[in-house]
C-alpha cells in the first residue's frame, strides 16, 4: 500500500493540471464566497456561516474534475494498463487513489474554507450581520462555525471520493463528470418544483449536495430536513456506494 501510495502520488504530482485545478478550486471558492458576502443583506438569508461558504458550490465542481481526471485520465491515455500491470491488486490501486485525491481535496478545501470564512468575517458585519442584530461574529471558537468549517472541508473530500468512484465505474472523463454534476445539481432543482412537503423533505434528505451542505448550517437547525452530521453521512454513503461500485467494476472488468 505504501508503494502504491508513492506511485499514485508521483502520478498526481506530475500530471499536468493538478496544481492548476487545486489553485482554481481555492480561488473560485474564495472568490464566489467573497462576492456573496459583499452583496449579502440580512433579509436575504439568515445564516452567516452558510453565506460565507457559498463558494463551496463552485469549488466542488473543480474538485470533481480533479478526482475524475485522476482515474479517467489513465483510461484515456492507456496508462491504466501499465498501472494495473505494475500493481495487480486493483482495490489497492483504488484505495491509494482515493486516499490521495481526498487528501488533495481536503488540502485545497481547508485553504478555501479558511479564506472564505475570513472574507465573511471581514465583510459580513458591514452588511448588518452584527451581534446587535442577533448574528454572532464568525469565529472558529464558536462550536457551530467550527463544525461548518471542518464539515465543509470533509464535504469537499467526500465529493472527490464520489467523483473518483463514478469515474472508475464510467471510465470516460466527460461522462463521469456529467454523472457527478447531475447527481449534485439535479436534486435541488427537482426539489424546488415539487410542492408536496413530504416529497420535498425526502428529496432534501437523500440529495448528496443538499444533505451534505447541511453541515454548513449554524442557525435554524431544528428546521433543517436533515441534521448536519447526518447530512454529511448521507453524502458519505453516496461516496462509499460509488467507490464500491467502481471498485467492483474495476476488479471484474478488463482494463
Amino acid at each position: 500500500m505504501k508503494l502504491a501510495l508513492h506511485a499514485e502520488w508521483t502520478k498526481l504530482r506530475t500530471q499536468p493540471g493538478t496544481a492548476a485545478l487545486l489553485v482554481a478550486a481555492v480561488v473560485l471558492t474564495v472568490g464566489l464566497s467573497t462576492a456573496v458576502a459583499a452583496t449579502a443583506t440580512t433579509a436575504s438569508g439568515s445564516d452567516p456561516a452558510k453565506l460565507a461558504l457559498t463558494g463551496i458550490y463552485l469549488g466542488q465542481v473543480v474538485v470533481a474534475v480533479l478526482a475524475v481526471t485522476v482515474m479517467s485520465g489513465e483510461y484515456s491515455t492507456g496508462m491504466i494498463r501499465t498501472t494495473l500491470g505494475a500493481m495487480p491488486r486493483r482495490w489497492t490501486v483504488l484505495a491509494a487513489k482515493a486516499t490521495l485525491v481526498a487528501g488533495a481535496a481536503a488540502l485545497a478545501g481547508g485553504v478555501a474554507v479558511l479564506g472564505s470564512l475570513l472574507a465573511g468575517a471581514l465583510l459580513l458585519p458591514g452588511h448588518g450581520f452584527t451581534s446587535a442584530h442577533g448574528y454572532p461574529p464568525l469565529s472558529p471558537s464558536d462550536g457551530a462555525v467550527l463544525r461548518a468549517a471542518v464539515g465543509s472541508v470533509l464535504y469537499l473530500a467526500l465529493i472527490a471520493l464520489l467523483s473518483l468512484g463514478v469515474a472508475t465505474a464510467v471510465r470516460d472523463s466527460a461522462t463521469a463528470v456529467g454523472v457527478v454534476l447531475a447527481l449534485l445539481f439535479l436534486f435541488p432543482i427537482l426539489t424546488s418544483v415539487v410542492t408536496d412537503p413530504h416529497w420535498q423533505r425526502h428529496l432534501q434528505q437523500i440529495a448528496p449536495m443538499t444533505a451534505g451542505l447541511a453541515i454548513e448550517a449554524t442557525t435554524g437547525l431544528r428546521g433543517l430536513p436533515i441534521g448536519p452530521w447526518a447530512g454529511l453521512g448521507v453524502l458519505a454513503a453516496w461516496a462509499a456506494g460509488s467507490l464500491l461500485a467502481g471498485g467492483v467494476l474495476l476488479r471484474l472488468r478488463d482494463a
Binding site: 458550490y57 465542481v61 474534475v65 472523463s173 466527460a174 461522462t175 463521469a176 463528470v177 454534476l181 445539481f185
Partner: peptide
C-alpha cells in the same frame, strides 16, 4: 472532456441553481 463538460454545466446549470 472533463474540463469542457464541467465548464459548460458550471456556467449554465449552476447560476440557475
Amino acid at each position: 472532456g472533463a474540463g469542457a463538460v464541467t465548464l459548460v454545466i458550471a456556467v449554465t446549470v449552476l447560476p440557475y441553481i
